[in-house]
Design a binder for these strands. Structure first.
Lengths: 324, 324
DNA sequence: CTGAAAGCGCTTACAG
DNA sequence: CTGAAAGCGCTTACAG
């Protein structure tokens, strides 16, 4: 990166003159202006904004960094909406880190981004990452993930799993299938654990289990079709009377299969994503919007207080009974 | 804002020592450390990150600023998704400006935010705003808005309106109602103009027109109910055989009313928001995701080229015929 | 119209 | 372990 000095030297002028040119050219002769412009183009000179900010006393406004995982569930956009609204009252903007590159890259950038706080969604941070933030005095909170000693706003996934099982059980179903995804993460494990535990309480197990192969960076709706085929297969090869889908998108495919086969099987999803109400899907509602909202509030209060007090908040899922 | 100097003076040490303390406390005696920490707490001292960045040579990574209007249509999140994916390949993050405060505030911040480019969604910028960006060498593109001489990625709303009319006309309908919103903006006007023009071509006018009062900062789904009541009223008081809804959310309310009244009226929406396919709503599809994607690509190429070439792109709407 | 110089608020060898 | 000094890349009175 060329600096103002190099441009000045090459153009045969002082740095002050270059500066004037770069700032609109007031009090600079036409001739000088052109000379400087030419050199700066040749060198591809761009004024260093950090330096400019420093001298101008223009510090960037506080910004909240938001870190997502790469697998982009529609649910994330609900969270984002919540964060956006939560931040609306205040003067914070949000910087959404792009996890296209690997995560370590993102974390290395954080200290340089002038962040007032960080919202980490759906995953945990490593010790290293947390330390990095701590050193820089940047508070952080987890969204949709729980960890002891970290400010976490999270859903009670275990309870959610139990509730799904209870619903199916309340329908007096005995042969229950499960359609999940093949990634192992906290949310999945807890949800699954709650579900199986409740089944076991009633001396039942999972009659049939299928996992959908979820890849990173894929639009999420592609899995709907996969679930459709999977469900057809389950229905045709197994004697089943209920299905629990790990998330609503999977259930949508399931509904299609059910309708096509005119199957009376009862199903329940998880999340209550927007289309669910239109489809009449019974599901366990995860208030994603609220999660984002709470997260925004929490991080703002941490920033203001300068505190590190851990005030985690567990959000309760809710059974939404519709027609499935 | 206290500076390192003030802390040093009050603590009776050199600035270098304060700096060491603020950076983890290596090579500082326990005693000095505590003294400095106390003073810095008392003064609420926070190291100036801009200065730190300057000396460290750590400049914040290029970031794309995204500016939305305050009225938050679900459609915006689709655009956001597109932008996010578009930026994924690169190293750009996105800074979503929060329009909670007034717009001028946002624009005043832009120069200080170290932005590589700006994506302005659904509205135009003032001369002043454009000038501000130009002075700072920040390229910008409009998304979902067209203006001569500005890089615009936009939908052909006029054509969309025509297509909606054509569809209704193709069903041989003659008494067509329109449900819109009471805001006047480019998108609305063009869509409406295209619609009425096509109607007029067939010697028809709008038989009945209602506008929903859309307020800023309201979750958009509240209008679904409003449209439901509106539609019922239209159906009961007028002799109507077709309705064009300005956007799908309005049409959702319409579908409910239609079903309740067992009305055979044909309707068409606009946007093709996610739930529409599940509801079987016939609509004019607006590829919001693609809009965002193109926008991301365009701004990146402008940044790289350093060009100001105007390469606007008009995106075609698409008629999606479903069961309504 | 122009250049030399001071200064923005930090960090980091360097010498002690 | 500590302080004084140089320097990061700019901008802006100031004197000419």
């Amino acid at each position: 990166m060329p600096t103002i000095k190099e441009v000045a030297k090459l153009a045969g002028v002082g740095v002050g003159t270059v500066s004037r040119v770069m700032n609109g050219g007031q009090n600079v002769s036409q001739e000088t202006m052109e000379k400087v412009l030419e050199v700066s183009r040749k060198l591809k000179y761009k004024p260093n904004r950090t330096a400019r900010s420093l001298v101008k006393g223009h510090y960037s406004q506080p910004t909240i960094g938001v870190i997502f995982t790469t697998a982009i569930h529609p649910f994330f956009y609900e969270i984002l909406r919540g964060i956006y609204y939560g931040l609306q009252q205040s003067h914070y903007s949000m910087l959404v880190f792009n996890m296209g590159d690997d995560r370590s890259n993102v974390f290395n950038r954080i200290p340089y981004e002038n962040l007032a706080g960080v919202l980490n969604v759906s995953t945990k941070m490593t010790m290293e990452e947390k330390k990095q933030l701590k050193i820089n005095g940047v508070p952080y909170v987890y969204l949709d993930y729980f960890e002891e000693d970290v400010n976490s706003i999270y859903l009670d996934n275990y309870l959610g799993g139990e509730m799904a099982a209870e619903y199916l059980l309340s329908k007096n179903l005995k042969k229950i299938a499960f359609v999940g995804e093949n990634t192992s993460n906290q949310q999945f494990e807890k949800r699954f654990a709650g579900f199986t535990a409740k089944l076991k309480e009633n001396n039942l197990g999972i009659a049939c289990q299928r996992l959908i192969d979820v890849k990173e960076n894929m639009p999420f709706d592609v899995y709907e079709k996969e679930s459709y085929y999977l469900t057809k297969e389950i229905l045709q090869k197994n004697d089943i009377d209920g299905i629990f889908y790990y998330c609503d998108e999977f259930a949508y495919g399931g509904i299609n299969a059910l309708r096509e086969l005119e199957s009376p099987v009862n199903i329940i999803g998880f999340d209550d994503t927007v289309p669910s109400k239109y489809l009449g899907l019974t599901t366990i509602r995860q208030p994603a919007y609220q999660l984002g909202l709470e997260g925004a509030r929490q991080i703002m209060s941490l920033i203001i207080s300068g505190d590190n007090k851990v005030l985690s908040k567990c959000i309760q899922p809710e059974l939404i009974v519709r027609s499935t």
